[in-house]
């Protein structure tokens, strides 16, 4: 029975604690499961620990002097808690980090080339690129200009495309909607959904834009102050009154009422 559950979850994160600089406890026992082939959202406000959770999974904590001090992470049944970031990418975990971070001085085409796994043949790489340009026709148009001069939306598409070149089984995205116009968010989320359907790619999506995220995922986790405070299906979360009030902009909530907001936040944690 236990084994069956394991087999269904491509990623399983159990009671993970992360310490930065050996003192700063950024997440405090987070458990997240990503079922194979599904899209899962990780919601929460600023500083909640969403990015830290993704970095714990991708192994990028090390670069920021962070480490997992408790708990374990398994990917396809293999313990990866201590694995190097590069190894995790090889296994099929790719993390589109916060803030797009394309290689600005390279062309979009070179950005894709840079992410090619070791040993990928030229023809496979070209096929991957064609597929990515198919998903993001705007990138194809601008593939030989300098990536730093692409628009925000195009850079986000490039960051996603660059991650796809690594042929991930689990794609993690950190706030891809940040700073983008609603129609672009819709376009990008639509493409993510399509890739998820077509290729069975599992997706872990970190968002502050809960409204948009809950439209495309099957389940969501709400993180506050380094802890999971809520977990449920997208439907359940959408109809939850607290989520509605504070993340979906429903009701009469005044988002600029900071006092009120922080009181509620304490309640949530």
């Amino acid at each position: 029975m236990q084994e069956k559950v394991e087999a269904q979850n491509i990623l399983s994160m159990n009671s993970v604690e992360v310490l930065y600089d050996n003192v700063m406890l950024a997440i405090k026992g987070v458990s997240v499961q990503v079922p194979k082939g599904e899209m899962i959202a990780l919601l929460g406000s600023n500083g909640a620990g969403k990015s830290t959770t993704l970095k714990a999974i991708s192994g990028l904590l090390k670069a920021e002097r962070g480490r997992i001090s408790r708990g374990e992470i398994t990917f396809q049944g293999t313990d990866i808690t201590e694995a190097l970031a590069q190894k995790r990418v090889e296994m099929g975990i790719c993390h589109v980090i916060e803030g797009r971070r394309v290689f600005e001085h390279l062309t979009p085409d070179e950005n894709l080339t840079a992410a090619a796994p070791r040993g990928m043949s030229r023809s496979t790489l070209n096929a991957e690129k064609e597929k990515i340009y198919g998903y993001f026709p705007r990138l194809a148009e601008r593939k030989n200009s300098q990536a730093g001069y692409l628009s925000g939306g195009e850079q986000q598409m490039l960051a996603i495309g660059r991650a796809l070149v690594t042929q991930p089984k689990l794609l993690m995205l950190d706030e891809p909607s940040l700073g983008l116009a609603p129609f672009l968010v819709e376009e990008i989320f639509g493409i993510l959904q399509k890739i998820n359907k077509d290729e069975g790619l599992s997706v872990l999506l970190v968002e502050q834009n809960a409204l948009a995220a809950l439209e495309i995922v099957s389940q969501g986790y709400l993180i506050e102050n380094g802890r999971v405070v809520m977990h449920g299906t997208a439907e359940a979360l959408k109809s939850n009154s607290d989520i509605q009030e504070f993340y979906l902009g429903g009701g009469e909530t005044d988002f600029h009422n900071v006092k009120h907001y922080s009181r509620r936040k304490r309640w949530l944690s």
């Binding site: 990028l60 970031a85 990418v89 589109v96 971070r101 600005e104 070179e110 070791r118 660059r162």
Partner: peptide
């Protein structure tokens, strides 16, 4: 070349390079 492009990518952004598995 592919290796050369990876080196230029590293110069641009270490973190992004790690994130896509560049050594």
């Amino acid at each position: 070349t592919r290796t050369g492009i990876k080196l230029r990518a590293i110069a641009d952004d270490y973190m992004a390079s790690w994130s896509v598995g560049i050594a």
